[in-house]
Design a protein around this nucleic acid. Structure first.
Lengths: 243, 243
DNA sequence: TACTCTTATTGTCCTTTTGACCACAAGACT
DNA sequence: AGTCTTGTGGTCAAAAGGACAATAAGAGTA
């Protein structure tokens, strides 16, 4: 596992050491988003070797010949974070001729959403220099990774409003205010609490957990969870999610 | 030109003949959409050689080492249709292990929108067996092209509602009813004429041409064109297109 | 226990948008 | 002149969206 991780980290640095069982000139880059204290973060790794040593990069790696694109993204994700079954979606393929030094490497980017439960694990699992960064305060990045992240954030902003994927960034059970703050944070807007509550509840996508918050110094809010079954039923009837 | 076209057509059939100056294992596939008599069409080509002879395929080809992805898509588009400057957007990258026979080939798909003016040219320019097909009556397709087209249509349906790209399928000057029928056709719905007119006009994206239809056997409608400048101005103010 | 503080939750009112449908206008054609 | 087809403007009620006041529920503190 550790060896795999290492090779996947160094792969971007030195394509000359590309193993034999992977597709040449094609790589994966993962945008791993998490939410911490109401702020949208992205997980980056620090390169240790080569000319880009000391700079930060999106985690990623090569694609094996016998592996689907999505499986490759998923594998790199697991190797880095120790978490599987994350929400994962293809973002876009970046292939500018000069995006990679000396070689032509096209990269297929994916974005993943890490739940609050897995947030600490994701950055702490591997000994590698993996670290969460607030998306509004990114360090210097290698290659075209800044461009990829910029595009990814824009897409996330769009998708989070049109599909019920934001829940993947929250704990399994969450309050309506947490959900509202998630949207406010990602979209960079301020929402009206009563109106937001009504809008969400009216959709019928949330199931009450019959539980309340604990450990808060004020009136505890009810906990809800995303009701995937209800969502599927609604989708068949032509429902369209929108915030 | 003709040689280029031929090689790009046969490329999918026999990857053994892949030229040297292209990226191995990576191809382009173009979804070329056009509108004819209010029906959404897609341009396909017929394979003449190899095991897939006689079946239809998305036009596409290889990517040169010194060429950006988008430029490759654009080049293949030009070689096939003789039309440049089409609306072109990356769709998705398809890379299932077994999508291509015997070899591992990942393909980056793009979709293009052909205006009514260029519709006939696009299919007639090249001597190759290129033909428009109604998207609801597709022939048997090679590889995973049916899946790609299916995905493309879904994306087009979504994007045409959220971005003012539908205009690219119409003539430069068009009537409101043409525009309405475009949406009805792509979305598969029926729209109310007065309401549609009001909604569109209220956006302020259409500039009147101070002209009217000619050669119609009824009251002639006013002609409009998409006002790109107005759109850019509105976008800066946070406008969001939506049908 | 009473009071305070913070957030949860409900209620109300007004504006805007959406959707359905009617009516008339304008040409082209017979 | 009459008819047919499509363009264009009007109306009205329902639904959605948005602003904001008011009350409820706890937890903590004096």
């Amino acid at each position: 596992m550790s060896e795999n991780s290492l090779s996947s980290f160094s792969s971007h640095v030195d394509p000359a050491t590309t193993p034999d069982n992977v597709i040449k000139a094609l790589s994966i880059d993962n945008l791993i988003f998490g939410l911490d204290h109401g702020q949208l973060d992205i997980l980056l790794i620090k390169h240790r070797e080569g000319i880009s040593a000391g700079r930060w990069a999106l985690p990623g790696g090569w694609i094996r010949y016998d592996e689907n694109l999505r499986d490759a993204a998923s594998r790199h994700l697991l190797e880095l974070t120790g978490v599987s079954d994350l929400y994962l979606e293809q973002l876009k393929t970046f292939g500018r001729v000069d995006r990679f030094p000396n070689e032509r490497v096209v990269t297929v980017s994916y974005y993943a959403l890490v739940s609050a439960e897995d947030y600490d694990l994701a950055a702490g699992h591997n000994a590698a220099d993996a670290c969460w960064f607030n998306v509004r305060a990114l360090p210097e990045l290698i290659y075209d990774h800044a461009e990829i992240i910029q595009y990814g954030i824009e897409q996330l902003q769009q998708n989070v409003r049109r599909r019920p994927i934001g829940f993947n960034l929250l704990p399994e059970k969450f309050t309506l205010l947490q959900l509202q703050e998630l949207y406010e944070s990602i979209l960079g807007t301020k929402l009206d609490k009563p109106n937001f509550r009504r809008k969400i509840m009216k959709m019928g996508l949330l199931a009450s957990c019959d539980e309340k918050q604990t450990g808060v110094a004020h009136r505890a809010a009810k906990l809800y969870r995303f009701d995937e079954q209800a969502y599927n039923t609604l989708m068949e009837k032509g429902f369209s999610f929108e915030i």
